[in-house]
């Protein structure tokens, strides 16, 4: 069996094990499902009244931003899950089995796609309730969801690496928030990036979270005529820019995470 086939086959066994855990510990799932609803309501009703989007409605503008933010946040689960696994006895079992050395990380990032699918469904439903609509047809909306999931999958690999280098589960939550908050807020997620002060605006325009948000808005048709046109190559070709980031992140962090897992000292 080739190495890649082994990683995928064994990864599937591990992913199944992670998914059983979601079923057995539904508290995690409830958090995954409730927090996007909270975000939708919070931004639609608390901030929404004060933010004016020329040409369209804030709620239409907002939802894609919340999609992007939530799936990126969801990546912390990957880190938490792995950090948690590494502290448990089960990891010594895995390390003594003739399984692919990549399977634990491959399986974890794969099972976390399921979290993101669930939270996207919940968010889309709550978005529809507060007035968000898909205007460009089903196929292009589906493509937009696909791109969001792909991007989230890439971020999962970053958090997988972080989860393998931190000493404990608590650290990863704090470390994750420190990176993910600026990344998801200094972007066009909640406000159009044009209004930001110059240094932040430049950051926002090249921030891949902005690109994936922009791509999703285009896919859903949430950018009616009159919405401020973004500037910069990244936001003018958001799909391509997002795909480039996705590939680069996976190309860097997948081998790094797998290597880290392989060489990780026997913790005990």
């Amino acid at each position: 069996m080739s190495r890649i086939a082994a990683a995928l086959g064994d990864g599937a066994v591990i992913a199944k094990r992670n998914l059983i855990k979601i079923k057995r510990v539904p508290d995690i799932l409830i958090f995954v499902l409730i927090s996007p609803i909270m975000f939708v309501l919070l931004f639609a009703y608390v901030f929404g009244g004060s933010i004016d989007i020329p040409g369209g409605s804030y709620r239409e503008f907002l939802i894609a931003g919340i999609f992007a933010q939530t799936v990126v946040f969801g990546a912390t689960f990957t880190g938490v899950g792995l950090a948690d696994d590494m502290q448990k006895g089960i990891i010594n079992r895995f390390r003594s089995l003739p399984m692919s050395r990549a399977a634990v990380v491959v399986g974890r990032t794969a099972s976390d796609v399921v979290y993101n699918v669930l939270s996207l469904i919940i968010m889309a439903l709550s978005g529809l309730v507060v007035g968000w609509r898909i205007h460009n047809g089903f196929a292009s909306a589906l493509a937009a969801f696909g791109l969001l999931l792909l991007f989230a999958y890439a971020i999962s690999w970053i958090m997988a690496f972080v989860g393998l280098i931190v000493p404990s589960v608590e650290v990863i939550n704090n470390a994750g928030f420190m990176v993910i908050f600026p990344l998801t807020f200094v972007a066009n997620t909640f406000v159009p990036s044009q209004n930001l002060p110059t240094p932040l605006r430049v950051f926002a325009e090249w921030n891949p979270v902005s690109a994936v948000t922009q791509a999703a808005r285009e896919g859903f048709g949430n950018l009616p005529v009159g919405t401020p046109e973004p500037t910069g190559w990244a936001l003018e070709s958001p799909v391509l820019y997002t795909l480039i980031w996705t590939l680069v992140i996976i190309a860097i962090f997948a081998p790094l995470s797998v290597r880290r897992y392989r060489t990780m000292a026997h913790r005990r």
Partner: peptide, 10 residues
Amino acid sequence: GQYAAVDEHL
């Protein structure tokens, strides 16, 4: 091993 290496949620 000396610590039961089983998954407690399974």
